[in-house]
Design a protein around this nucleic acid. Structure first.
Length: 371
DNA sequence: AACAGTCTCAACCGCCTCGAG
DNA sequence: TCTCGAGGCGGTTGAGACTGT
């Protein structure tokens, strides 16, 4: 008997690591306001680091790891919380396509967002929307069985047998006509089930969570509603010298330098080259299969993936052998195209993502009505 | 009003990485 | 070179909030 226990203990000690947070009377679960105050107060006074000693010094019955997580994921003052912008969503999706579930890497490109928040947002929002779009959230390629993403076949396999009932729920939502590139969020945006406007309240209610994406939807609606007239304006203003399929190789920064001289139309074209979200609205012929709120065009996105590769560890050669095709990814950050390191790749993406974020306001404020 | 089902996200778990000694 | 521990990371869980019936 004792011998068996010895073997068992030996086996366990070899197979599993001792939990870092074992101790009598250590508290678990949700943090109280009082605990938060203690932790904030201590870190303000002594700074971060030395997490192991913090609980004792701060008078907390928590393990150091728990304190660190609470601080880095929630209490840190610079953390941005709440609604993700459409630009942030795009960055997450594109980075996830190239990096996979490297949440910390993705978080580096989204200032003030934590990896945990991004991970949660992906799992609860973006992943589902990609599936709804007919895109495999793992491979970021079209789902094989899906021939008509507008009514994704895969949804049928995600019905009652799935724990995720959001689809069946949303299918019961009132539908209304919307521009092709506006997403499923548009369906329920700003509207309660009886059709009356939903007003935001202060609580983190489910209503509010749905409304989190409403800015995306509003922008999508705004852009999509103008897509047709924009295209017409393009054709007219460029007198055929510039059409909707024109490829712009100018860098984004160059475009901005010439911003004052550029028409909104050419700028939007350039934006579209960067931005699948805009591209689908500019090139409606590309969006026949697009229903996602994200508005990401499959062909465009596949192109992105081809140029970017998915796996850092196995795409060094792939990365090196491609010129990335996209000047947009390179020019803005003055990176060597031949660079092969993950760090350089990070920098490249960072330049692009920073640009997207930096000019989000500009994109949002663009005067579509003038077109 | 009550209940069951569903969704969200803060927090936890356990493994990994890396630097110090 | 090896060991150890702090911190980092991605996956998972479960409490609480919300919706539908």
């Amino acid at each position: 008997m004792n011998f068996s226990i010895l073997i068992l203990v030996s086996y366990i000690s070899k197979m599993s690591r001792k939990p870092c947070c074992v101790g009598e009377g250590l508290k678990k679960g949700a943090w109280t306001t009082e605990e938060d105050k203690k932790l904030i107060s201590y870190i303000h006074e002594h700074g971060e680091g030395g997490w192991r000693d913090i609980p004792q010094k701060a008078g907390l019955k928590r393990c150091g790891k728990s304190c660190r997580l609470r601080w880095t994921n929630y209490l840190k003052p610079e953390i941005k919380r709440g609604e993700f912008s459409s630009e942030e969503e795009q960055i997450i999706i594109m980075l996830h396509a190239s990096r996979g579930n490297k949440w910390s890497v993705i978080a580096r490109h989204l200032p003030r967002r934590t990896d945990n928040e991004i991970k949660n947002y992906w799992n609860t929002h973006l992943k589902k929307r990609l599936i709804e779009q007919g895109t495999d959230p793992v491979t970021h390629k079209p789902l094989a069985s899906n021939t008509n993403p507008t009514v994704p076949e895969n949804l049928h396999s995600l019905d009652a047998s799935s724990s995720d009932k959001q689809y069946s729920r949303s299918s019961s939502m009132p539908t209304m006509s919307c521009p092709p590139s506006s997403g499923f969020n548009t369906v329920f945006e700003n509207t309660s089930k009886d059709g009356t406007p939903v007003h935001e309240d202060d609580s983190l209610s489910r209503k509010k969570r749905f409304k989190k994406s409403s800015s995306t939807s509003r922008l999508l609606n705004k852009v999509a509603a103008k897509a047709t007239s924009m295209k017409e304006a393009l054709s007219a203003s460029m007198e055929g010298s510039l059409n909707a399929n024109t490829s712009f190789s100018n860098s984004f920064s160059e475009q901005i330098r010439n911003e004052e001289d550029s028409s909104n139309a050419s700028l939007i074209n350039t934006l579209a080259e960067f931005d699948p979200f805009l591209q689908t609205t500019l090139y409606p012929e590309h969006e026949v299969n697009t229903t996602s709120d994200l508005g990401i065009d499959q062909d465009y996105f596949s192109h992105f993936l081809e140029n970017f590769g998915r796996d850092d560890d196995h795409n060094e050669e792939h990365y090196m052998n491609h010129n990335y095709g996209h000047d947009l990814l390179m020019s803005d950050v003055s990176q060597e195209v031949s660079s092969t390191s993950v760090d350089d790749q990070d920098n490249t993406i960072e330049g692009w993502s920073n640009y997207l974020l930096d000019h989000a306001d500009f994109i949002h404020d663009m005067d579509y009505d003038s077109l």
